[in-house]
């Protein structure tokens, strides 16, 4: 029996309707840290998207969410990823330099 074909047959309509209902595929965004500041956050953030934080500065920083959703400790030159799990505004800052701050606006 041709299981591959059969699986495709059943799966196909399902994934088509799924594609209609679901929004666009999750995206990867970048947010760079340089010269003692977070770059302006990317626009159009959606739940499920990923942010890659890039520490291009010569100093260690963190990307820390005030609501506890993420806390990345980034040595100079390092990167780290976080996934956006819920909609809303997420204020973030650097634990080592609390005057470094920003806000992500995440839509559902």
């Amino acid at each position: 029996m041709d299981w591959n074909r059969r699986a495709f047959f059943f799966a196909a309509p399902f994934s088509f309707s799924g594609a209609n209902l679901a929004r666009a595929k999750p995206k990867a965004h970048f947010l760079r840290i340089s010269a003692m500041a977070f770059e302006p956050p990317p626009a159009g953030l959606r739940v499920g998207d990923e942010i890659e934080w890039i520490n291009s500065d010569g100093f260690r920083h963190t990307a820390t969410a005030r609501n506890g959703d993420f806390d990345l400790d980034l040595m100079p030159g390092r990167r780290g990823r976080t996934v956006l799990h819920r909609p809303g505004a997420i204020d973030f800052y650097c634990r080592y330099h609390p005057s470094m701050r920003g806000r992500l606006d995440v839509r559902g």
């Binding site: 010269a35 003692m36 609390p98 470094m100």
Partner: peptide, 16 residues
Amino acid sequence: ETGLKLFRAHEQHAEQ
């Protein structure tokens, strides 16, 4: 100039 940005952040942190 980089040092100044860094030390300003330190100053604000200390004030806080």
